[in-house]
Write a protein that binds this DNA or RNA. Structure first.
Lengths: 135, 135
DNA sequence: TGAAATCCCTACCAATTCAGTAGGGTAATA
DNA sequence: TATTACCCTACTGAATTGGTAGGGATTTCA
């Protein structure tokens, strides 16, 4: 299942992508318009900022804003930051590879075979979608 | 993440698919060969049987066996039985559809748009793979 | 017929994750 | 300098995961 964190993060990103001139938008505004718990959203925006997807400005008139243009923001990046690995098992993960401690022979493992295909097809979707495509 | 339940279930199914003549195989044997906790595997095989994927035989010489031929067992079925819905959000699920309580307009929702594509690509993989393809 | 093998079923449990909530601190701006 | 708004830590209730424990119930074979 997709976590609420990812869901809310995506909604916030698309919200910010629609803003004219990359003006800072307050957390409260996004939370209200997208029906998200403000405090929870706050923590999500923070991780998006820490990972270089958003910028922030403090004080009056401050808020969060998109750093790049929507068409430059790939979904692979967004998903990895918010949801974590794209692969459903570590043994087929590109960025978070880990060997299964059971499973003596990875090449003959049926789970491995299937999940490799699932990962590739998901990657294909994420690579072919930027924030701009979701508006 | 793929649950251990699904992982072990898939491994057990492929194990049984390799057996000559669909002879019953004991839980203990599968558990040992695939490095799975026996009691946990027991519960998994039970749900596979309840959902019409496996048959069982009690008493001495009993065990579990595949009901259909491997090439007749689609991965869509297996995944739905073991892992649940294939979609990552209920609002794009074919078999378990639910409207989001937030999200006023499904058609304009960016999460919906993206997850629809992810679901379709996953379905594509599962539909094009049977148990026989994983051996 | 009886004992052993094997599946069947229920209940429980520790650890982790999820989806927040609470409360205050700090920096920037007007 | 007051206010706005981001920043950070800690806690928490509920649900899920990945099992374990223990005892049936049923079938088969000797």
């Amino acid at each position: 299942m997709l976590s609420k964190k990812t869901k809310y993060g995506l909604k916030a990103l698309t919200y910010l992508a629609k803003v004219e001139g990359r003006e800072p938008v307050q957390i409260a505004e996004i939370a209200k318009c997208e029906n998200i718990s403000q405090k929870f959203l706050e923590s999500i925006l923070l991780t998006l900022r820490r990972n270089g997807l958003l910028g922030s400005k403090k004080g009056k008139g401050g808020g969060y804003y998109l750093i790049k243009e929507p068409h430059e923001v790939q979904m692979t990046t967004v998903m990895r930051v918010l949801e974590g690995p794209i692969a459903m098992v570590p043994c087929v993960s590109l960025n978070f590879y880990e060997k299964c401690e059971d499973c003596p022979n990875e090449g003959e493992c049926s789970v491995h075979k299937l999940m490799l295909q699932v990962r590739d097809s998901a990657l294909d979707v994420y690579r072919n979608n930027t924030l701009a495509d979701l508006l």
